[in-house]
Simulated scan of single mutants.
Amino acid sequence: MRTKTVRVLLVEDDDGDALLVEALLEEARAPFILSRARTLAEAEEKLAGAECVLLDLGLPDSQGLDGLHRLLDKHDAPAILVLTGLDDEREGIEAVATGAEDYLIKGQVDGELLLRGVRYAVERRRAEDAQRQLREAELRAAERSRLERGLLPPPLLQNSDVNLEVRYQPGGQRMLLGGDFYDAVGMPDGTVHAIIGDVCGHGPDEAALGVCLRIAWRALVLAGEPPEKVLRTLDQVLVAERHGDGIFTTACMVTVAPDRRSARYFLAGHPEPLLLVGRRIADLPQSKIGVPLGVLPDYAWTGVDVQLPQGWSVMCYTDGLIEGRVPEDVERLGVERLSEILHRHLQDGPNWMDSVIAEVTELNGGALDDDVAILLLKDGK
Rank of each mutant, 00 (worst) to 15 (best):
122 V>W: 04
287 S>G: 05
46 K>F: 09
91 E>D: 13
168 Y>V: 01
77 A>D: 09
120 Y>E: 03
201 G>D: 05
169 Q>N: 02
264 R>V: 15
329 D>P: 02
151 L>C: 02
44 E>H: 03
101 E>H: 08
355 S>Y: 03
251 A>P: 03
255 T>R: 15
101 E>V: 03
272 E>N: 07
318 T>I: 03
33 I>G: 13
113 L>P: 02
208 A>P: 07
284 L>T: 03
295 V>C: 09
103 Y>V: 12
362 E>T: 12
231 L>Q: 04
305 D>N: 09
118 V>C: 12
46 K>G: 01
84 T>R: 08
378 K>T: 11
199 V>E: 01
321 L>C: 12
134 L>V: 12
74 K>A: 07
102 D>F: 03
54 L>T: 06
50 A>T: 08
72 L>D: 08
29 R>Y: 07
251 A>I: 02
348 D>C: 01
292 P>F: 02
102 D>I: 03
110 D>H: 10
187 M>S: 09
334 G>A: 08
274 L>C: 09
17 D>K: 05
347 Q>E: 14
199 V>R: 00
323 E>D: 15
228 E>C: 05
362 E>P: 00
250 T>N: 04
210 G>S: 04
375 L>K: 01
170 P>D: 04
284 L>K: 03
365 G>A: 10
355 S>L: 14
164 L>H: 00
378 K>C: 08
184 A>V: 04
48 A>N: 11
301 W>E: 10
29 R>S: 15
92 G>I: 14
52 C>E: 11
30 A>D: 14
367 A>C: 03
270 H>K: 01
266 F>W: 15
209 L>D: 00
362 E>F: 05
288 K>T: 14
8 V>R: 13
99 G>Y: 04
6 V>M: 14
211 V>N: 01
191 T>A: 06
184 A>D: 01
54 L>F: 11
55 L>D: 10
238 L>M: 13
267 L>Y: 11
332 R>N: 09
56 D>S: 13
291 V>K: 12
158 Q>R: 12
370 D>C: 10
35 S>D: 06
326 V>Y: 05
127 A>Y: 12
156 L>M: 09
43 A>I: 10
55 L>M: 07
167 R>M: 07
83 L>I: 10
347 Q>M: 11
279 R>K: 13
253 M>Q: 13
163 N>D: 11
370 D>L: 08
272 E>G: 11
360 V>C: 08
359 E>V: 08
208 A>F: 06
280 R>V: 11
46 K>R: 15
355 S>I: 07
163 N>H: 11
84 T>M: 05
62 S>I: 03
366 G>S: 13
24 L>A: 05
120 Y>H: 14
62 S>L: 04
300 A>P: 08
170 P>G: 06
136 E>Q: 11
343 H>F: 11
314 V>R: 00
183 D>S: 00
77 A>C: 13
71 L>C: 12
202 H>I: 04
25 L>K: 00
73 D>A: 15
247 I>W: 02
46 K>N: 10
160 S>T: 12
246 G>Y: 08
80 I>K: 01
215 I>T: 11
227 P>H: 11
107 G>K: 10
253 M>N: 01
318 T>R: 01
199 V>H: 00
